[in-house]
Design a protein around this nucleic acid. Sequence first.
DNA 1: TTCACGATTCTA
DNA 2: AGAATCGTGAAG
Length: 203
Amino acid sequence: MKPIPSTFFCRPAEVVGPYLVGCRLVKRQPDGSLLWGVIVETEAYSQDDPACHGYRRRTPSNETLFGPPGRFYVYVSYGIHHCVNVVTDRDDWASGVLLRAAALPHEPERVAAGPGLLTRRFGLTRSDDTQPVTGEHDAWLAPRPASLNSPELVTTTRIGISQGKDLPLRWYLRSSRSVSRRSKGDRLPSLMQAWLPLAEVAG
DNA sequence: TTCACGATTCTA
DNA sequence: AGAATCGTGAAG
């Protein structure tokens, strides 16, 4: 459960994105217990990409994305949901990795299957925006357990955007049932129930 | 001040 | 397939 060091995030979003699949999102609850899940799906966004929030202008709401790497960037989507990114690369360059889905032990497999559901389950809101992901805050990221090394990654296109929709900047764990939306033709073998062992093993 | 549009989710 | 729902950025 030790945090990933900040240097890990000082790389392009398209490098950090796939590495983050299999890592854990951890949050310390008010009662002191730890809530955690395995990240099973991510997407990368960079300033030179029309779909990126930092593509057009630096504003108060996307300011965090332009700031130093290793922080949470939380924004409001459709006025209803929150979505969480991890800021990557370098200062003054807007880029980040969107955390799209996670698998939680002993919980319904779809409870965090989507960026809005993930933030809902972990209780992340705009008040977590700008907070470090490296352990100084009540939420942080932990490395992928050795038992989950070299996860079978699917590389595919991003979801819910109109521009840059053909770029291969989404990654997910093929064996997970907690992925928000699978790529066309990628079916999970019916007998495989990897989501539960995944959470167990990672614990 | 107004208007159109989502890095979504749920329901039919 | 379509609605719900409202923060945000660009236009006026």
